[in-house]
């Protein structure tokens, strides 16, 4: 049996300000990971990543990150991805203070 596929989200940095963003089911880039499309099928994940990469004028550096379903939507599995949902720990900068617009 092939190993179970760990659910994924497509994530990237917004082209203009570099802020971490996640691909939603309706093809928006959201600054909130909880709005991301949680992908549970490997082939679909690959397809979504290709589609994301094609959107060169919106984002840079798209990749698939492990995620799991939480109370509000997808949540990070790894601490690196958790930092990306907040910002640095040495200053109140980034997402943790710049309340992202509702998308």
């Amino acid at each position: 049996m092939p190993p179970r596929f760990t659910p994924k989200v497509v994530t990237a940095n917004a082209l203009l300000d570099g802020d971490a963003v996640w691909l939603t089911e309706d093809d928006h880039w959201s600054p909130l990971m909880s709005r991301a499309e949680l992908i549970t099928d490997e082939a679909h994940a690959d397809l979504r990543l290709l589609q994301a990469k094609a959107r060169a004028s919106e984002i840079a550096g798209a990749y698939l990150a492990d995620a799991r379903l939480g109370a509000d939507g997808p949540e990070p599995v790894h601490f690196r991805e958790a930092f990306r949902t907040r910002g640095p720990s040495n200053y109140p900068h980034g997402k943790q203070v710049e309340t992202p617009p509702q998308t």
Binding site: N13, D17, G18, D19, A20, A60, G61, R80, F83, R84, G87, P88, H93, G94, K95
Partner: peptide
């Protein structure tokens, strides 16, 4: 000299 990091350039 322009990098892309975790939260910004």
């Amino acid at each position: 000299g322009l990098y892309l990091q975790l939260h910004a350039y």
